[in-house]
Amino acid sequence: MTRPPTAAQRRLIEAADPVTGRLRGPEAQLAALVKRGLAFRHARPPHDHFLTPAGHRVREAEPGPERVEQPAATGGFAARVGGEEAAPGDGPARLREVRGAWQGMLELRRMTNPDGATDRPCGWERSHLVRAAALALEAAGHRPAGADPGDGGYRVRATPQPEAVAVYEPDGEALRACAATLEEAGWQAGEYTEPRTRARYLLASPRRV
């Protein structure tokens, strides 16, 4: 029976692009995955590595103790973007869940950013902007808005601009606190006013450097 991948190899598999299966990591680890039949090296430059069907099956298998969770992915944990109904599980358990997801995000940054940096967003966050920004806010203790349109709290929404989300918070001081949190988490955030409603909001995008 084939030995299961090591913890380091599993981390690479878990961090692969969710759509293409593209892998990033040390050459020795990638070569080991190729040898196990879990990845292949593309014949054309830049000769990137991708998961094979067997590699995808490993990724989709039940998580083991070494698995790195990908926060806010499809299914499982999802950060609150604001506007959701309150859930029965809210409270200390939710707080622990959010903090764990944020630590998982930092680990994902370390593994997938080319220089291993954890102070700026990674590729997963850039492809899940709303959920990523919401996770940074919720993990820092900001309160998401409830289902009632008049509820206070933040609301993170998509925008027509590439790589940018809008963050709404009716309380001006809380809005500025959201901006500080996002900037600390590796985002750029500027405050703007909607011409029609005069509502203040943040336009935030992941920092690249």
Rank of each mutant, 00 (worst) to 15 (best):
R59C: 04
E84L: 12
G104R: 07
E107C: 12
E183Q: 15
V81G: 06
G82I: 01
P88M: 01
D115E: 07
A140W: 12
E184Q: 14
M1K: 08
L202A: 03
T74K: 14
E62H: 15
E138A: 03
Y192G: 09
G190N: 07
D90V: 06
R143Y: 09
A28P: 03
A79C: 03
G116C: 01
E66C: 08
T20L: 13
Y201P: 15
R120S: 06
Q29Y: 12
G82F: 00
G190A: 04
E173A: 08
A139Y: 15
P92S: 02
E84S: 07
G100T: 02
L23Y: 02
E125I: 08
P114N: 05
A32N: 05
R155Y: 00
E125G: 07
D48H: 13
A78I: 06
E163K: 14
R44I: 10
E183L: 13
A133Q: 07
T112Q: 14
R24W: 13
L108I: 01
T6R: 15
P195N: 09
G123M: 11
D151Y: 06
P46M: 11
P63K: 14
Q9G: 02
E163H: 09
A73M: 11
R22F: 08
R59V: 04
A166D: 08
T197N: 06
P65M: 07
E69T: 09
L23P: 00
R120E: 11
R10Y: 03
P65W: 03
